[in-house]
Design a protein around this nucleic acid. Sequence first.
DNA 1: ATATAGTGACTGTCCGGTCAGTCATATTCC
DNA 2: GGAATATGACTGACCGGACAGTCACTATAT
Lengths: 222, 222
Amino acid sequence: MPKETLFKIAADKRERLLRQAALLFAERGLNQTDMAALAGRVGIAKGSLYNYFDSKEELYLYVCRDGLERSRQAVYGTLDPDWDTYRQVDHIFCQGARFVQSHPEYLILYTNIASAGMARFAEQISQEVEHYTADHLKRVLRRDMAAGIVRDDLDVTLVAFTINSLYIVFMTSLVSGHFRIRMREYLEITGELDPPAIEALIVRTTTMIHRMLQPISAPANE
Amino acid sequence: MPKETLFKIAADKRERLLRQAALLFAERGLNQTDMAALAGRVGIAKGSLYNYFDSKEELYLYVCRDGLERSRQAVYGTLDPDWDTYRQVDHIFCQGARFVQSHPEYLILYTNIASAGMARFAEQISQEVEHYTADHLKRVLRRDMAAGIVRDDLDVTLVAFTINSLYIVFMTSLVSGHFRIRMREYLEITGELDPPAIEALIVRTTTMIHRMLQPISAPANE
DNA sequence: ATATAGTGACTGTCCGGTCAGTCATATTCC
DNA sequence: GGAATATGACTGACCGGACAGTCACTATAT
């Protein structure tokens, strides 16, 4: 946890610190980011950082948590749990892509904690995020299978896992060079990946998910 | 590229070096691995490493490339391109899981190059791997859609992308703490993830893929 | 004898964290 | 009101450890 001092300084300075830290950590990773450089970007002295946090790792952890909360809020905070599966999937992909385009740094931070030597952060962070989204998606799927809106011959947990995997890989492809290469190879994208192109990709993706979830007897709904 | 010296030393020493380097890099990442520690594990002096490679980064890149070739060989080197989509998917998941369980370090290396500050490696490495697998999977899908074995109302490139995403996330879940947490939350796994449990998970996963690809008119084939 | 592989102490650099001191503001006291 | 005092945010030079890469030297093989 940060020291109390962090919450006593001017709000805009705190916000600047958190944003710059997220950007730098996302760009260079924990080990390659140095505290002097961060302090420089924020416009304060290195020593000040140690008035707010006990260590670089504590700062890193706090920035990650903060970023995840912002992401979760952007996607799930604007969703109506009564919508059917199809609409929720659309919404999650649309809002996710929108947020990720305006704040790629937070997703990158989350991706980074999957890499070597970051396990201690994953343990502290992943559980809560994943539990929340998994729970949500499975509940909606079960409800709509029971209602006959979603085909019920598929394994709920696996379908949820598949949708989430696709979501993660899709979003990551929008922000990470490595994943972008994969997406381009698979989806045969040659031009720019600008907002309209992304919009179109999302429609293709959600359409496919709709078709896969559609009860077999029913005709595809578009 | 490594110096010629690397190929003049005893084969078993070279093999020991490459294996230990893969293990260490996978465990700690590029920046946290130190050359002295690596030399110690291999049982040679640090200076010797610089007789084989010009720099740590060059060694790292070579180890990654080597590992990817071993992985590709294990999965695609044992596959008959004439098999139908279903059998190929089964084979890829089975062989992939088998390889990943015996040599988790290579997949971890591949995952790591997706993280911050590793973009220069991703550019040099990802393209060829992804191109190969994407091409293969899409060709098989197109052939079987034309033959009426696979439903043809889905977007081929996206289906390939989805299967690959699921494959990557699945395999990564077997080796990385962060992804394992996700898998456990989604699939509600509470017990051990030992080989039989993994085997069962693969069957569930490939079964779902089969159902999703099955032509709509046909009854699910199990 | 000579070429080539192997060695490890050494060097320079980088960076996380410290701390003694500064200064602007708040509080107290007359 | 204003002088005296207290508070705590802020600073940045400095320290110590870590580590990539070097090189003068040794060992070995042919």
